[in-house]
Design a protein around this nucleic acid. Structure first.
Lengths: 197, 197, 197, 197
DNA sequence: TATGAATGAGTTTTCATTCAT
DNA sequence: AATGAATGAAAACTCATTCAT
């Protein structure tokens, strides 16, 4: 009696959430299946393996991030500050909703152990760095922009971790504030130079 | 063969390294035992459970950090910059040698899943924050010092994570540079104010 | 090989027999699995834990006793003696076939050690006492009936134990005879009183 | 530094109590050692094996019973009732203090599994039966006396079990009362016959 | 005698995965 | 597609026992 009880996308979304909360190894396939309302065996109709499911979860996260944020970085109608705010707001919303970072959880558990996944994660972070960098290049020179982008994203991931330890969201919000302030100041100083001419 | 093959301290040190590299759940007791050159059952002579062993590893890490770095923060013979450098050098050395942060790995794997450990981790980070804060209070007011301390430590942990993803140590060294520069600039600005009086 | 090799009921029946013969702690899950012709891991598909399996065995024993004996105690077509005989025959058959009492084994091994089980066992014995009591109330007053019921069931369990020690079934059969005789005499004495009126 | 911390007799007494409470398999050598205040390894100086320790516990129980009760059955200065009372009081005290019967616990756990022990237990019960029988022969004929003795001891063991299930000592005390009453009535009836001559 | 480290076989339990229906 | 029984390898943990000091 084959009747679709749940779509592949819904399973991925559930898996993403559980992986984020409990980590890769502490999450069992039967647990995901149970939350999905199907049986363990049925999961294997959609995904060949747990690794496959996790890769799908990473890709889906990446895709959502792309559509929700990265895609708008090229928008010529937005100011530098608008674009940065948009990116920051998107990631803040995501990390607060998920109460953690799936990428961070999975990286540390799998990086030395499940090599196939490392690449997906690297791809995601590279693209994030590229996007922040692109925005920053509007006010910084190329090298500096990239450095700040890397630094900022590392700071975000670190603060998400601290947020989990201390159950205190201000770690994350403060990093984001710092990023905004830094760029605002830079822009003001550039404007000053401009006006002084 | 009853005679002591390995000390409790040596076991803890090995466990700490393996936990850091492979994460908590991917590390099995038999694996640790094997590296120690003893049998799985013998591990349980020294530690009642895996959680117990990990707690010992965390505490040992904490203790080493305390002895190697925190203890010198109160030294009146050192300048603010010396103390900060000392702390930074110690953590940089530790994280580069271990090729990662045990605390970060364990936090993300266990925080929502093995509650007993959360407290040990919180204690460590609180103490670290306190020590950086104490140093910074020499040049910042209290509230600001604490904020910067929290921000810095979050940034360090985040950069250690990125370091593992990209196999690129510059994430970590650059955060440390940033911390040094920031404080140096602050001190210079304070000196300027002093001299202008 | 996915298809059903053995039903849950069959597993319970096997477990019941093995638990009765070897006791709870001397019986391992792999042993039960082996007799069932499945793997240890497959047992856990049907039962969450050893305790769960044992509870199922107790409940199944209880249910059989209920269906085979307790259910007929309310039958108005039977004389007091018939009902008592029916109950006695049923328990005698059960205990001789099993060569022991699962309840007794499990009680003594688990009562101070696996608290979850105590309740199931208490429930069974309470119901047994109630049933014997109900029959006896036809010839004794309420209080006395209950006392004799408790005494009799204790005597049965003790005799099953002695039966195992001495490999001598007469311990059990003699207790049953004693119960029958006692009631018969009582009835005769009541009839005498009746006739003398 | 060999200094006697605890005597062999004290260890046996402790083992006897723990075996009674928790059963044979649920009692570990380290647990007994811990209560004794010595280390597990040291237990093996006194006893070659767990089975050896348990056999010692059984023998010690048997010996105490012998000295405390059986030895007085031959006392010509006591009446039948006195002797029976003495035996009953002794066993009642023992079973209530121990909150259970070691023999019963161990029988059911080991009878089909550790054959060496079965013999010790049979010997104890045989001797107990013999002693009760000897007393009863003063008022019953030989065969009848033995039957009642067996019946009574089975009833005692069963009631000790029920006492553990229901945490209700009256199971045991009532069996003992029943034994006393039965013999008193028999004696009274014999006296009647005597007087009627 | 007592210690305590080590053993090794055993226990319960978990879990990703397979597959016939 | 979904089921659910079965697998088998591996996990954490237990414990009676040994033995050099």
């Amino acid at each position: 009696m084959p009747k679709q009880k749940i779509t592949k996308e819904e399973i991925i979304e559930i898996a993403r959430q559980v992986f984020t909360k409990k980590g890769y190894h502490r999450t069992s396939m039967s647990e995901i299946a149970e939350i999905c309302g199907i049986l363990k065996g049925s999961l294997y109709h959609h995904f060949r393996s747990k690794e496959d499911l996790m890769t799908a979860a990473i890709d889906s996260f990446h895709k959502k991030f792309k559509e929700g944020a990265f895609s708008q970085v090229a928008d010529p109608g937005l100011t530098t500050q608008d674009k940065l705010n948009m990116l920051i707001n998107y990631s803040e919303k995501t990390y607060l909703e998920d109460e953690g970072s799936m990428m961070a959880s999975i990286v540390l558990e799998t990086i030395n152990v499940v090599p196939g996944i490392a690449e997906s994660i690297r791809t995601f972070f590279n693209e994030w760095i590229d996007n922040v960098s692109t925005i920053l290049e509007e006010v910084y020179e190329r090298e500096g922009a990239r450095k700040i982008a890397k630094e900022s994203i590392a700071a975000i991931e670190g603060s998400v971790m601290m947020m989990q330890i201390f159950k205190d969201e201000s770690f994350l919000t403060r990093v984001h504030e710092g990023m905004r302030r830094r760029v605002n100041e830079k822009i003001r100083s550039l404007d000053l130079v401009e006006n002084n001419k």
